[in-house]
Design a protein around this nucleic acid. Structure first.
Lengths: 203, 203
DNA sequence: GCCTTACAGTTTACGCTGTCAACCTGGAAT
DNA sequence: ATTCCAGGTTGACAGCGTAAACTGTAAGGC
């Protein structure tokens, strides 16, 4: 006889079903749409069942964040292995970063726009590993480690500023979006390679 | 006989007392610490009394946001009226913006870091008026309106990126914070004045 | 002096949230 | 046959924003 299935399809065990529903809700309504009870009722179980598979709601969200970083890393690292000089590569990488943010704003939101106290329990080392793609900005500068790290952070800040303001709809809509993005990516290149007061660089 | 005071000190009518307590809670615990019930119990009234003076919790927060913009505008406009060439003025203004963000992170949070759907009801024109200081970035470039607006948005994005990542504690703490800020402000100057592919500019 | 009106607050309640403790239940192992 | 346990459920708790109904008090008009 078949191994006695529960009411749910065993091909998608509960944990995966919960994750899948969380993805759907996130993509359709952003972070605000994620609630344990809503997930549970869509999946066909009770809210507390969620805690059999995830330590907390936060840790469920961390799983989604990980998925987001996986995609971001894939996109960025793909592009970073392309051809061309460092400046053009950096612009391509920057473009890939911005594209990810604008194409998957809900993922970007939980990855980079949640307030710190809501992220407290996200393991620091996991976060560092997850942010792998951000190091690419630094590496492309080919500067000494500390200088490179600073330039990388500057590039990241620059891109993050635009992406988060666009997602939050704070930028004047009368501005030509793609021109703005182009200019800013160019500007990020300047931030990475142009002469800064602090030292080593090339024009 | 005295005009029969209610249990509360009439010198600070309820609306002001609520605002004051909201300020205190915001400054001590950020947006997450703001709850109608917590405010009410600290003030000595019920949660629903709040709705006699504010349309909703959101509109109470808008009042705080307005206060934040008032301070930001004061700081930025003060500096923008200083002496020096446009580039140095822009760096001073950028410095003032960043300083505000880092010195009043809880205000910065509700002003610029809340997700869009939570801000939906903030009147668009009020928001435009509130953001007066952001136009300074554009004005200092002394470029044709459209180009200036784009450059201004780029500068703002750049600064916002750094401030929001610092506030959210996403930037590697091993980096020298003030050097980073210096570099980024320099970089924002480049974004405003350097040659971009799109046209009019000066070195 | 009495009645009306308006205001300023409270009580109560609704539906929502994340989470915990206790309970149940069906199948596998002893 | 009995025990054990993983995987679920029920019920509850404390908190949230907010709407409706109620209460007490002050001021104004007659």
């Amino acid at each position: 006889m078949p191994p006695s299935r529960p009411t749910r399809d065993p091909a998608t065990p509960l944990r995966e079903a919960i994750l899948q529903e969380a993805r759907t809700l996130l993509e359709s309504g952003g972070y605000a749409a994620l609630s344990t009870r809503r997930i549970a009722s869509a999946v066909g179980c009770t809210a507390t069942s969620l805690y059999l598979h995830f330590k907390s709601k936060d840790s469920l969200i961390y799983a989604l964040i990980d998925e987001g970083f996986e995609e971001l890393n894939r996109r960025v690292l793909d592009v970073s292995r392309g051809e061309g000089d460092a400046l053009h590569l950096l612009r391509d990488v920057a473009g890939a970063y911005v594209a990810f943010g604008l194409e998957r704003p809900e993922y970007y939101e939980i990855m980079f726009m949640l307030r710190a106290e809501q992220m407290e329990r996200y393991p620091v080392d996991a976060y560092r590993r997850a942010r792998r793609s951000l190091e690419v900005f630094a590496e492309l500068t080919a500067l000494p480690a500390e200088e490179a790290a600073r330039r990388g952070a500057i590039v990241w800040s620059t891109l993050h500023g635009l992406v988060s303001l666009l997602i939050a709809q704070r930028i004047d809509i009368s501005l030509d979006r793609s021109a703005l993005i182009q200019d800013l990516i160019h500007s990020a290149g300047l931030g990475a390679f142009a002469a800064l007061p602090s030292g080593a660089n090339r024009t």
